[in-house]
Simulated scan of single mutants.
Amino acid sequence: MKIGTRKSKMALAQTREIVEALEAAHAGLSVDIAENDTLGDRDQTSKLLVHGGKGGAFVAGIRVMMRRGDIQMAMHSLKDMPGNEETPGLVIGAYRPREDARDALVLRKGLDFKTFDAAHGGSFRLGTNSVRRAAQLRRRFPGVEVIHFRGAADSRIRKLDAGKGQDLPEGGRTEPADGLVMAAAGLRRVGLADRISHHFETDELLPAATQGIVVVECAADDWQTRDRLTAINDVPAQIAADAEREVLWVLDGHCNSPIAAYAAADGDRLHLKAEVLDLDGATALRAEAYGSVGSPRALGRAVALELIGQGASDIIARTRPR
């Protein structure tokens, strides 16, 4: 069997863990890794919107391999998979246990969190490629300049420490960043957890829907692969993902809309929080509710409809690519 993945250090680490889990669950099974040089990995300058968002940048090329029969499975970070569209012929066969869903602050060497904390009213540049993080940071830290900053986690941090700006698609380069806001789980995966200066709790920066969840996708009619993947499926992660992705589905959220959602179980109860923001962070709509772990999509739908009642559809329409 073969599993497809991106060539990045982080993606390969995630995929190796899946291979180990599958081979441990099925005696005699051998799984090879097929690497894909995705558009998003090749182009380290453009905004992901140019490639159709994260789905076009990081997912589409690997799906081509699967539909061609080159691979039987594909590893994806679930937050890279569009939540507002169907994927005919493909299904998620396994959800892996959720890692740390929080965002983290990485500061240039020589700076510490006190430096950042004291700079809210002054000049401080934070780099991110996420429209959701950018909007949240502009709202929470109005004195901080948020700049476009792309690349794999390790290469971004090298640019940060070297004092290099981000090349811009229209030409030129940003000023160097003083810090970056990145996924805590990704930093751990590439051995850079020690660079985290501060974890943003979910009440500070609500994460992207399904942040920290890795999934394995396969063909809907490949019952042998689906059966094998059942052995490594994590039900708590699947429940949280179902609630959070239902928010995206009902809102018809797209790659350029700052939407956050996070679900956490407490016994048989599921707590879901969601947020929709304008790109500049000036407006932020929030909703939350409790529901049953047995009905995560119903909870996601209820929270999304509450946001729509507050005017979320108008915000999402304003941010939709034209």
Rank of each mutant, 00 (worst) to 15 (best):
T38S: 07
K54V: 04
E17W: 15
M10E: 00
K47S: 09
L22M: 02
V59E: 01
T15W: 11
A24M: 07
D100M: 01
L111Y: 13
V50N: 03
L126I: 06
G121E: 13
P88Q: 12
I62Q: 08
A134L: 07
N84Q: 15
K79C: 00
A104D: 08
K114V: 13
K114I: 14
D100R: 00
K9P: 09
K109A: 08
Y95V: 07
G127Q: 11
L126W: 00
N36V: 10
A101S: 14
A118N: 13
S30V: 14
H51V: 12
T38E: 11
I18S: 02
L22R: 01
L78A: 00
I62G: 00
M73T: 06
I92Y: 00
M10C: 09
A118T: 13
H51W: 10
S77K: 03
E23A: 06
N84S: 10
G28K: 10
F113K: 15
V19T: 03
A60G: 08
D32W: 12
K9S: 07
S123T: 12
V19Y: 03
S77L: 02
R68A: 13
L105Y: 00
A21D: 08
R140H: 02
P82G: 09
H76A: 13
Q72Y: 02
K9M: 12
R132L: 14
R108I: 12
F116G: 03
G61F: 04
A104I: 14
A135F: 01
V19R: 13
M75L: 15
E17S: 08
M75H: 05
